[in-house]
């Protein structure tokens, strides 16, 4: 709980500061957009968090977003496949990617960093090759499907809750239940802390690692689908670029340790929200957008450092009170 308190504080601080400095920040349109993007990035961050909690890392997220993002409009608009078939194909592709990562990590004992780095390169290459590097889109059609990304549930005339945000909330609740209330979640945490002890306790650690990579690939694919439906103009070389780093950053901001075992879904979602909020603040406050990465990097660094300092102070206080 304490871990979430820190990042929640940052979220509130950035929100209030931006609102005070620029009243336009609070317009319904702007808030709605920020929520939509929080939802989209939250989805891929949750998947990244599962792999990190299991003690691994997934660098392929952005490329999977790109690959699925071009695949869906290509098959729907270009090839004229039906919607259910295309969605099934996308699901199958993501499943295959997750299983492949998991198998390479658990069977061949390759390092997750290497496996998913190669994935990053391979899926990006595939995305560009199958489209001939041509921008993909849904044109004017598929309005129903696109509502998944651009739709909203109106609250007032100018503000509604975006559908992607709701999808992310549902996913977050399911993920939190999986992580905290199921045997699989317990296993993933245990093996993230100490894989050998988990194996000595009779846990099928290989299967649980594969599960984590499959979850990451599936969420990346879901994100890829929604991102594509949202922008409607998908560039094979750029779609989803660097998104794996956003996802990892959100997970780390939300309290996941890259050493494995630690982390909560609520923290990850708030981490993703902080990143989107910062991005929005930079734009709306007229800060040069060239500084975007620098500012986000600095905030993450400060957040992680502050967390560490607070923990040490708490430890020192506990030591003194015991004396």
């Amino acid at each position: 709980m304490r871990k979430i308190a820190g990042i929640s504080g940052v979220l509130v601080a950035v929100f209030v500061l931006t609102a005070v400095l620029e009243p336009n920040f609070l317009t319904g349109y702007n808030l709605q957009n920020t929520l939509r993007w929080t939802g989209l990035f939250g989805i891929i961050s949750i998947g990244a968090a599962f792999v990190i909690i299991a003690g691994g890392i997934d660098l392929s997220t952005g490329s999977v977003v790109g690959l699925i993002g071009v695949m869906v409009p290509l098959l729907l608009a270009d090839q004229g496949w039906s919607v259910p078939v295309v969605l099934t194909a996308a699901l199958g592709a993501a499943l295959a990617i997750g299983l492949l990562h998991g198998a390479l990590v658990t069977r061949l004992r390759l390092q997750p960093f290497v496996v998913t780095l190669c994935g990053l390169l391979i899926y990006r290459g595939l995305a560009r090759w199958i489209t001939g590097d041509q921008t993909q889109g849904f044109g004017m059609g598929f309005d129903g499907l696109r509502q998944l990304a651009i739709g909203r549930i109106s609250v007032t005339a100018s503000f509604g809750i975006p559908i992607p945000f709701l999808i992310m909330l549902v996913l977050a609740v399911l993920s939190a239940l999986l992580l905290n209330r199921t045997v699989w979640g317990r296993y993933i945490k245990a093996l993230g802390h100490n894989e050998e002890a988990a194996r000595y306790s009779g846990i099928n650690t290989r299967r649980m690692v594969v599960v984590a990579y499959v979850i990451a690939a599936l969420t990346a694919a879901l994100g890829g689908l929604l991102f594509a439906l949202d922008v409607n103009s998908v560039q094979p070389a750029a779609q989803g670029g660097f998104y794996e780093l956003y996802a990892i950053a959100a997970a780390v901001l939300g309290g996941c340790s890259l050493r494995g075992g630690e982390g909560s879904i609520a923290g990850v979602v708030i981490g993703a929200a902080v990143l989107r909020l910062l991005y929005n603040a930079i734009n709306i406050l007229g800060i040069p957008t060239q500084l975007e990465f620098a500012i986000i990097g600095a905030v993450i660094l400060c957040g992680v450092a502050a967390d560490e300092i607070v923990r040490r102070l708490a430890a020192a206080r506990a030591a003194r009170s015991a004396a």
Binding site: K189, A190, H193, N194, E196, A197, Y200, G261, E262
Partner: peptide, 9 residues
């Protein structure tokens, strides 16, 4: 510590 227990749990 290495095989019997997950020390952080």
């Amino acid at each position: 510590a290495g095989q019997g227990l997950v020390l952080q749990m």
